[in-house]
Design a protein around this nucleic acid. Structure first.
Length: 312
RNA sequence: GGCCAGGUAGCCAAGUAGUAAGGCGACAGUCUGCAAAACUGUUACGCAUGGGUGCAACUCCCAUCCUGGCCU
């Protein structure tokens, strides 16, 4: 009986871009017998490799990675789709009696898994969205206030994207946006946050950018374009994809492109840190040693409990 | 040396007698299906320096310093 009482585990690794999440995840996976579940909103797309910083075959060092290349860049992938796939992957890994390591910089995706927030099931209706997009935020807010005052009260009244999504839900369901309650996973999670000095991060980003250009990032973007991804879509992917696309269209110069990617990446770091700092369960670590210490302690809980459960 | 233009926040920049637009950056933050996205807030008791004229000057006048252009 003892061997059947496996305990569910999940290690989460977060941190700003270029902080070394992927490397740490692979290390921990090798040490503890884990598989990695990527939580990156761009690495889910096939063909977006260099620009998104997807691990290479060598970098995986034989560790299985889930949730990479699961979507076509031609279609819009969403947090809800991610949630479904990621939860499935977590379960799958746990069933193999291995440790799932959820690793990535997309805070919203991480939250979708760890809190299992029940995201509204209304699918995007682009026709409706485009219609609504013609209105000003004031108008949108006024409509929402009328149809769903409770949501209007807490929504950002100047953010068209949020307003439109809320209205989409209201109009498609005929009901107010449902209140979500976070469903915490029924087992403890260990969340590690990689802490790197901002200044150091800037250097890392700049080095990484040079490397990516050397590896053919521009060709990658050109290829995506030739495969039918519109410039607009590429620009919407942000960072490297946005500014490479602008450069390839000759809307900006190459130095401007490099400059923009650098600065925008630094802004991105800031947004990520704002998000992750809010999560008080994150254990901030500086290196593998600190990570191991926490992981050892966390995983040791397994033995204690599995040893005890059969007796009771 | 002469003439002209100009010196406004970390940077770019508007204003031009009535009490400092805007953009970038920086910093902080938001987040219920686009999240590398979208969005919000803060950021010059002071406009090269010193005088002067006005009730009132960044705005007008004078001098000085600095920058750029042209001329010799």
């Amino acid at each position: 009986m003892m061997e059947k009482t496996k305990l569910k585990k999940l290690i989460v690794i977060v941190g700003p871009t270029a902080s070394g999440k992927s490397g740490l995840a692979v290390e921990l996976a090798r040490i503890y017998g884990g598989e990695i579940i990527s939580a990156d909103s761009r690495q889910v797309y096939r063909g977006m490799d260099i620009g998104s910083g997807k691990v290479t075959k060598e970098e995986t060092r034989g560790i299985k990675h889930h949730l990479l290349d699961v979507a076509s860049p031609k279609r819009t992938f969403s947090a809800a789709q991610y949630q479904k796939l990621a939860l499935k992957a977590v379960k799958q890994v746990q069933e193999k009696n291995k440790i799932p390591i959820l690793c990535g910089g997309t805070g919203f995706y991480i939250k979708a898994v760890t809190e299992q927030t029940n995201l509204p099931t209304v699918a995007p209706d682009w026709k409706l969205r485009n219609e609504l997009a013609k209105k000003s935020t004031d108008e949108l807010f006024a409509i929402l206030t009328k149809k769903d005052p409770r949501t209007a009260k807490r929504i950002e009244r100047s953010n068209p994207r949020r307003l439109i999504r809320a209205l989409e839900i209201v109009m498609k369901t005929g009901k107010p946006v449902p209140e979500t309650k976070p469903l915490l996973l029924p087992y403890p999670i260990l969340t590690l946050g990689i802490s790197v000095q901002r200044q150091k991060l800037k250097h890392l980003i700049s080095q990484r950018l040079a490397k990516r250009l050397g590896r053919g990032m521009l060709s990658e973007v050109k290829r995506l374009r030739s495969e039918g991804i519109s410039w607009k879509k590429l620009e919407n992917f942000g960072l490297e994809y946005r500014y490479c696309a602008l450069f390839l269209q000759k809307k900006i110069t190459r130095p401007e492109m490099v400059d923009k990617i650098q600065i925008e990446s630094e802004h991105y770091v800031k947004r990520q840190l704002t998000w992750f700092k809010k999560d008080k369960t994150v254990h901030w670590i500086k290196n593998l040693r600190e990570a191991k210490k926490l992981a050892d302690k966390y995983l040791a809980m397994r033995e204690k409990i599995t040893a005890r459960v059969p007796k009771t």
